[in-house]
Design a protein around this nucleic acid. Structure first.
Length: 271
DNA sequence: AATCTTTCCTGCCGGC
DNA sequence: TGCCGGCAGGAAAGAT
């Protein structure tokens, strides 16, 4: 499911096909996503050029002539570039059709994704203003995490998944990063030492960076792909491995529930 | 029927 | 008393 590495991979796959393209037509087959796709959007976007693409948290931002198109993949969304006459399938809700004969198509079976439009400074959009730092930027460091966790009784796993603390850490990578850092998911965040904050920051960075690198290998198939772009198999240390032996020490991986989500950890490697 | 995925929102609680 | 932040729980759709 789209976590930050998948979104970053999608961005890198889309960028060469979309930047500089003129939008000839916008097709909204089902506007009922997480929020309704703005009714005026097709009229607004027609004739505009995509100037640049970037990512903030798990939002894809397409800068156009008069504003920014905001895309979110939710839990099940995917984007791909196709020839413009490609027939849509059941969950294909939104197309940007370009004047070069291609289109960008959003498929989202569970419809928790979003297509929104913002004029003016994109950093001021309500969804973006209160976000914490990007996990791969320098401002996300041991001091930041240490300060963000002081006097917090919530489990550390929930705090690193809090987008006000740091963006882009979803359930899979939260579990993997905590294993890598040797920290139990249920540790009260306020009890994390400065040194362990640094270790966790580094672990989050490495976990995401390795996953993005893995995703890069799928870029070749981005256009005309039948598979899900940016969705790749990988070798998890703990995620989904309940009852299996720890790859590091051989003890049994445990599963618990935190904030209605599954957490996985090795009771001997993580303290 | 339960589970999984993201993230915003509601409501309760305690502190000042 | 009112406001604030922290936190738990709930909600959305569909495949399995």
């Amino acid at each position: 499911m789209p976590e930050l590495p998948e979104v970053e991979t999608t961005l890198r796959g889309l960028a060469p096909h979309l930047s500089g393209q003129r939008i000839a037509q916008v097709i909204v087959r089902n506007p009922q996503l997480r929020w309704p796709v703005p009714e005026q959007l097709p009229a607004i976007l027609r004739g505009q050029t995509i100037l640049a693409l970037r990512r903030r948290a798990k939002y894809l931002l397409l800068a156009c002539d008069s504003g920014t198109l905001i895309l979110h993949l939710g839990m099940s969304g995917s984007l791909r570039v196709l020839p413009e006459n490609t027939p849509p399938e059941k969950h294909d809700h939104f197309d940007l059709v370009f004047s070069n004969g291609t289109l960008m198509r959003l498929r989202d079976p569970r419809r928790f994704g979003a297509v929104l439009w913002h004029t003016g400074d994109i950093a001021l959009h309500p969804l973006l203003t209160r976000l914490g730092p990007e996990p791969l930027n320098d401002e996300f460091d041991s001091g930041h995490l240490y300060h963000a966790t002081r006097r917090r009784s919530a489990p550390i796993k929930l705090v690193i998944m809090d987008s006000h603390v740091v963006v882009g850490v979803g359930n899979i990578y939260a579990n993997e990063a905590l294993f890598r850092a040797g920290i139990r998911p249920q540790l009260a965040a306020g009890k994390l030492s400065l040194a362990r904050s640094g270790k966790l920051v580094q672990s989050i960075r490495e976990t995401l960076t390795e996953s993005i690198a893995l995703g890069g290998s799928t870029l070749r198939d981005f256009v005309h792909s039948d598979g899900k772009p940016g969705y790749f198999q990988q070798h998890y240390w703990v995620y989904g491995r309940t009852g299996e032996p720890c790859r590091q020490c051989g003890n049994t991986i445990k599963q618990i529930k935190q904030g209605q989500r599954s957490s996985f950890y090795c009771p001997s490697c993580q303290k």
